[in-house]
Simulated scan of single mutants.
Amino acid sequence: MTIFLPKEARRSMTIYQLECFIAVAEELNFSAAAERLFTTQPAITYQINALEKETGLHLFERTTRRTKLTAAGQSFYLDMVQMTSFGRQALKKAQDIQEADRSRLTVGLRQLFDYGTFSSILAEFQHQFPNACVDVVPQDNRRPLEQLRSGQLDIGFFYATEHSRDRDISFTPLFSLGYHVLMNPNSPLADRRALHLADLKGQSVVSSGAFDNFLSACQGPSLEQLAQVGVDCSKISPSFEGALIMIQMGTAMSIVPCLSTAVIPGIVKVPLLDFPPVTVEIAAMRHAPRLEVQSFIEIAKQKYAHPHDPLLMETLI
């Protein structure tokens, strides 16, 4: 690091020269200053001579018996002590900010995600990184990758169907979701082991904004496809919760990809065979991967590698 003098000086002095000067000014002894800085007395003398030459200042009165600051040296010393103190404070502040930034993790969460397992991932991550701060923010279904590329997210969750491979982003598969038809247990189709889209002819399927965006991202059945096989798509719910109530009441069905172990009170789910399972992936930028990001991904892989216990409604994606 170099501190520059006014233009007329045409030279510069270094931090090490200032450290040597302050040590001599406080010790008033070149040998003692050398011991303090773990160097030799000739090295200290060289640095002080260079500093005086570059600044044009006579800083010390030196005799064989003693070393004394000149008036200019005393003034220079007081200012340099204050300046170096400010420098240390500035460095410490910048280091603290950088460390805080490194330990902050921003994770995107999709609508209708597996909240139960996600909570266990967060808990394990906080156990491993107790000083880390995790921000969980909504993930945009319309432009999911842009939040990663722009730095808004450190980690995001994606469906393999909604992106092409990107060399700048690392995708790690976590689990697959099969499509299921959700219905009331008293529905005539509730006892079927599996269904095709054509089997839903004459049935009512409720749609909601969250589901429509999700099915589009997963390339699941569209309302147009359902209408073509004779499904009534006129029922609309403003929320996923409202749609579940309609299904529990037996007034409508719904089609969602979900974990095979998902358990939804008052609802039966029957596999739909017309659409392949969709893979859920966790993703982060490849460049300069941070330890926190790598650890979060490893924890997620471990959590989804083990068989799931029966899961409640929150496990729907």
Results as ranks from 00 to 15, higher is better:
Leu316Met: 15
Lys201Arg: 15
Asp274Ile: 08
Met253Phe: 00
Gly250Pro: 04
Glu99Ser: 14
Glu52Asp: 14
Ser75Gly: 11
Glu26Leu: 03
Gly151Glu: 12
Asn186Phe: 09
Thr39Lys: 06
Pro271Ile: 01
Ser31Trp: 00
Leu177Asp: 06
Gln248Cys: 06
Gln139Asp: 05
Ile236Gln: 01
Gly156Leu: 04
Asp309Leu: 14
Pro277Asn: 00
Gln228Phe: 09
Asp101Phe: 00
Gln89Gly: 14
Leu59Pro: 07
Pro276Asp: 09
Asp212Asn: 07
Thr279His: 04
Asp168Val: 08
Leu69Pro: 00
Pro221Gly: 08
Leu145Asn: 01
Ala190Asp: 01
Pro173Phe: 07
Val268Gly: 04
Phe60Tyr: 10
Gln47Gly: 09
Arg65Tyr: 14
Gln219Asp: 13
Lys93Gly: 13
Arg66Thr: 15
Ser239Pro: 00
Asp140Phe: 02
Tyr77Pro: 06
Phe113Ser: 06
Glu224Phe: 12
Leu182Val: 09
Pro277Ile: 00
Ile245Leu: 04
Leu273Glu: 10
Leu189Ile: 08
Asp191Ser: 13
Ile155Tyr: 02
Phe38Arg: 15
Ile15Gln: 02
Ala194His: 12
Ile255Ala: 03
Pro130Ser: 10
Gly87Tyr: 15
Glu61Gln: 06
Ile15Val: 06
Ala132Trp: 09
Asn141Leu: 13
Arg167Leu: 01
Met313Pro: 01
Ala198Cys: 07
Ile267Gln: 00
Tyr77Met: 13
Ile317Cys: 15
Ser254Gly: 11
Val268His: 08
Asp114Asn: 14
Lys301Tyr: 08
Arg66Cys: 10
Ala72Tyr: 09
Tyr159Glu: 09
Ile97Thr: 13
Arg290Tyr: 11
Lys201Tyr: 06
Ala9Pro: 05
Gln228Tyr: 10
Leu215Trp: 12
Glu224Met: 09
Glu124Gln: 10
Glu19Asn: 15
Val278Trp: 09
